[in-house]
C-alpha cells in the first residue's frame, strides 16, 4: 500500500485539525480501509486514528434510546447493547467474525455505507440520528446510495442515537463468499408504525420498503405481506444472485423477521 502519516489524537478537536490536511482520512477499525489500501485503491496522505478518543466510545442507554459512540467496536455493541436494544446487539454480533468485530466500528461502517453492510439497515429501520462533529443527520437523509453518504469531507461520526422500538429483528441472508448480506432486512415496530429497511439488495444501497411498512403498520403479521412484492428492477444482480432472487429474498426475510419479533 502507499505510505502515509499515522496520527492518533486524543480528542475530536485534534482529530479535526489533523484531518484538515489534504487527502487525510479518518481511520477507525480499519476493517474496510486497510483491505482497500492493500489493493492500492486508496492513497490517503495521512490517517487519523479515532481509536484513541475515549469520547467516541461506548454504549449509553438514555431516555427512550441508546447512544453509541462512533468509534465503538461491533463486539462492544453486541455485548453492551444486548439489554437495551437486543436486535441491534444481535446485528452487531453477526457482523463478520470475532476478530472483525473487535476492531470494526459503527462509525466506520456507516461512513463507508457498503451496500451489503448490516448497520445501515439498523440505522434506517430504527430512524436513528447520526451525530457528527458539526451536526445531527437523520437516517433518512444520511444514506445516499452505494458507498455514498451525506458526510462532508473531514466530517467525523461521533455517535449514533437509536430510538428503541417495541420489537425489532434483523435477518441477514449471507452472500456465500463474503458473508456480508446478500440481502438483509431489519423490521422495527414503533408505536407510530413499522419501519422496514433492506440492505444488500438494491443498486441504490440501503432502502426502506414502504409498502411493507404500511401493510405491517396495519397488521404486524407475516401474512400482511401477502400480495406485496418487490420489483426486481434496480436490484443488484451478480454472480451470487439475480435481481429477482434478491427481490424474492426481501419479502421472505421481511416475513420471517416479523415472525421472529
Amino acid at each position: 500500500m502507499y505510505n502515509f502519516d499515522f496520527v492518533k489524537p486524543a480528542t475530536v478537536d485534534e482529530a479535526l485539525a489533523a484531518l484538515a490536511e489534504e487527502d487525510a482520512l479518518p481511520l477507525s477499525g480499519g476493517q474496510t480501509l486497510i483491505p482497500a489500501m492493500k489493493q492500492r485503491l486508496n492513497a490517503p496522505s495521512r490517517l487519523v486514528s479515532l481509536l484513541g478518543i475515549d469520547a467516541l466510545k461506548g454504549v449509553c442507554p438514555g431516555e427512550g434510546g441508546v447512544t453509541i459512540g462512533g468509534a465503538t467496536a461491533h463486539a462492544v455493541v453486541a455485548r453492551e447493547a444486548a439489554a437495551v436494544y437486543p436486535a441491534l446487539a444481535a446485528l452487531a454480533g453477526g457482523i463478520g467474525d470475532p476478530a472483525v468485530r473487535n476492531r470494526g466500528t459503527i462509525g466506520g461502517s456507516l461512513a463507508n455505507n457498503d451496500p451489503a453492510a448490516c448497520y445501515p439497515a439498523a440505522v434506517l429501520a430504527s430512524g436513528a440520528v447520526i451525530v457528527t462533529d458539526r451536526r445531527e443527520i437523520a437516517a433518512d437523509s444520511f444514506f445516499q446510495g452505494m458507498f455514498t453518504t451525506d458526510l462532508e469531507e473531514g466530517e467525523i461520526i461521533t455517535a449514533v442515537k437509536f430510538p428503541i422500538p417495541e420489537a425489532a429483528h434483523y435477518l441477514k441472508f449471507e452472500q456465500p463468499a463474503s458473508r456480508f448480506a446478500l440481502t438483509g432486512v431489519v423490521v422495527a415496530k414503533f408505536a407510530e408504525g413499522v419501519r422496514v429497511a433492506v440492505t444488500g439488495a438494491s443498486e441504490d444501497g440501503v432502502f426502506r420498503w414502504s409498502e411493507a411498512e404500511a401493510a405491517l403498520s396495519d397488521s404486524f403479521r407475516p401474512e400482511a405481506l401477502e400480495g406485496l412484492s418487490v420489483p426486481a428492477e434496480g436490484m443488484i444482480s451478480d454472480l451470487h444472485g439475480s435481481g429477482a432472487y434478491r427481490a424474492h429474498l426481501v419479502k421472505v426475510l421481511t416475513g420471517r423477521a416479523v415472525q421472529a419479533c
Binding site: A177, S178, L239, H240
Partner: peptide
C-alpha cells in the same frame, strides 16, 4: 475473473 478473492469465491467454513 469475477470470483477473484474470498469476497466472491466462497470457501467452506
Amino acid at each position: 475473473l469475477l470470483s477473484a478473492s474470498y469476497m466472491d469465491y466462497a470457501m467452506p467454513r
